[in-house]
Design a protein around this nucleic acid. Structure first.
Length: 230
DNA sequence: CACCAGGAATGTA
DNA sequence: TACATTCATGGT
C-alpha cells in the first residue's frame, strides 16, 4: 500500500542530512570549452564506471587540446580510444562519443538549443543514438540541458524497492512513480538523484535501525551493496 | 583474489 | 518480456 516513507519526505531528509551534492561535477573548472558538452561526454564515459576514471579521461582530452565539438569531429577514433582509455570500455565508448558528436553536429552543434522543445521527442531522439540508453539520455537532459528528466539508476531501483516504492523495479516504472510523487522541478530531480547515490554509497553497519540518525527511516537498513556472489 | 564503479547493446528462449 | 553475456579500466 502506501510506502512507509514517501519520496518527497525522503528527499527532504536526505537533503537535510547530506546537503547539496553539487552535481554535475567536473574536476574543478571546465575542461572542455562548454560545460554542457562536457556533461554529455561525462555521461557517456561514466557508464558503469567510477567517476575518478572518467575525470582522468577528460583531463587527457583537455591536455591533448580536444575541447570543442569540432575537435571531437576531427579526432581519429583510434586516438580518441587512447585518450579515454582510463574510463574503461574504451573502444565502445570512443564509438559512442563519435556517434553522439556527429548527431549533435547535425542538430546544430549546441546542446542547449538542440535539447530545448518537446521533452519526449528529444528523449526519443537521444535514445536512437547508439550508446545512449535511458539513464544516459535522462542524465544528459537533466544535467546538461536542465530539463526535468528524472534519472533512475541501479541505486534508485534498489533503494526504492527497500522502501516499498515498487515491487518489481524497472527503469520506466520507477521513473513514472517518482515523477508522479515529486514536484516537477529540475533542482529537485538534480539533487534527489545525487542524494540517492550518496545514500547508496554510505554504509551504516553499526545501527541498522538508525536510532538517532538524521536519516531516520530513509536509511534503516545496513549496507546497500549488491548481494555477494558465491 | 573478488568485487565494484553515476550502462547499453546484443543474443537467446 | 525476461535474463545472460560482452565490453575493460582502475580502485579497494
Amino acid at each position: 500500500m502506501t510506502p512507509a516513507v514517501e519520496p518527497l519526505r525522503a528527499f527532504r531528509r536526505l537533503l537535510k542530512a547530506y546537503g547539496p551534492q553539487h552535481w554535475w561535477p567536473s574536476s574543478g573548472d571546465t575542461l572542455l570549452d562548454s560545460k554542457d558538452l562536457e556533461v554529455c561526454l561525462g555521461a557517456i564515459l561514466t557508464q558503469n564506471t567510477n567517476w575518478l576514471n572518467v575525470e582522468k579521461a577528460l583531463k587527457n582530452l583537455h591536455k591533448s587540446n580536444i575541447k570543442n565539438l569540432k575537435d571531437f569531429l576531427r579526432i581519429d577514433q583510434r586516438n580518441l580510444e587512447r585518450l579515454i582509455r582510463s574510463s574503461g570500455y574504451f573502444r565502445q565508448k570512443a564509438r559512442k562519443v563519435k556517434e553522439f558528436v556527429r548527431h549533435l553536429d547535425r542538430r546544430g552543434g549546441r546542446v542547449g538549443k538542440w535539447l530545448s522543445g518537446d521533452l519526449k521527442a528529444r528523449r526519443r531522439e537521444l535514445l536512437d543514438i547508439h550508446g545512449i540508453g535511458p539513464e544516459t539520455a535522462d542524465s544528459i537532459l537533466l544535467y546538461a540541458a536542465q530539463r526535468p528528466a528524472f534519472v533512475v539508476d541501479a541505486y534508485t531501483l534498489r533503494i526504492g524497492s527497500r522502501l516499498g516504492w515498487w515491487r518489481t523495479a524497472t527503469y520506466d516504472r520507477a521513473q513514472a512513480f517518482l515523477v508522479k510523487k515529486l514536484p516537477k522541478r529540475v533542482p529537485v530531480y538534480n539533487e534527489f538523484h545525487a542524494l540517492l547515490v550518496t545514500l547508496a554509497k554510505r554504509r551504516c553497519r553499526k545501527d541498522p535501525l538508525c536510532a538517532g540518525c538524521p536519516l531516520q527511516d530513509v536509511c534503516r537498513f545496513g549496507s546497500l551493496n549488491h548481494e555477494k556472489k558465491n
